[in-house]
Design a protein around this nucleic acid. Sequence first.
DNA 1: TCAATTAGTATACTTTTAGTAACCTAGGAG
DNA 2: CTCCTAGGTTACTAAAAGTATACTAATTGA
Lengths: 119, 119
Amino acid sequence: MGKMKITEGKNGKRIVEEPCEGPCPIERGMRIVGGKWTGSILWHLKDKPVRFNDLSRQLSGASKKMISQRLKEMEENKLVIRKVVSDQPVAITYEASEFGKTALKFLDELQLWVNENGL
Amino acid sequence: MGKMKITEGKNGKRIVEEPCEGPCPIERGMRIVGGKWTGSILWHLKDKPVRFNDLSRQLSGASKKMISQRLKEMEENKLVIRKVVSDQPVAITYEASEFGKTALKFLDELQLWVNENGL
DNA sequence: TCAATTAGTATACTTTTAGTAACCTAGGAG
DNA sequence: CTCCTAGGTTACTAAAAGTATACTAATTGA
């Protein structure tokens, strides 16, 4: 993703070499970790497994549907691990995977940035 | 954003102390920098001012409408600076503000994360 | 027995976003 | 005059995101 060269031909036409056809890495990253609530969910799982309804209470701004949807995505993306802790009564926990924890590193940075700048 | 305490009352009711009412810092950050194309746009402005149509050519996946919309948001959020370089003929450049550049610091991290993990 | 908990799913609906394509005002080249 | 460029705007459509409510089935507590 080096420099993008813009040359101006004699005819005055401007030509861009190597335009970003598809999404750039940043774009792709955002699509994994930038979904609404995704970061927050991961954040809440940072140091211990959490059960669905507890998570739902913690993120009181998000609906159960949203949370369930996001958790599924995140499971597919290997960010979180879903564990059936017991049936009868059913108990399920979600925890950040090792990979999920690598993402937390940069979420930390984001949080820092937000706090430093009073956003 | 310390630990979230979950206590189980004698009645079996689970109570969460200090739930995230509104969006957490991470969420707020994402809403500033996580919009579709926002990161990519900022990235393209990282070391030099760029003109609207050049940007549009560089991000060939995004429509002019999208870019214009995002640039406006980003200007409001003080991430970029719009400059009228000349009228007759009109020429306008967009560049990353100092604040915008602080965001680039952690977008670098995101990019690194994406590349390291082959996403 | 009534009520509440667990982890979700189903349905219906509204709102927001994204994307397409055409259009605009201006200047400049041929 | 005609076509190209610049820097967008407008109108419309399609898809995604989000909300709200109800529902499941098994268990526990009063």
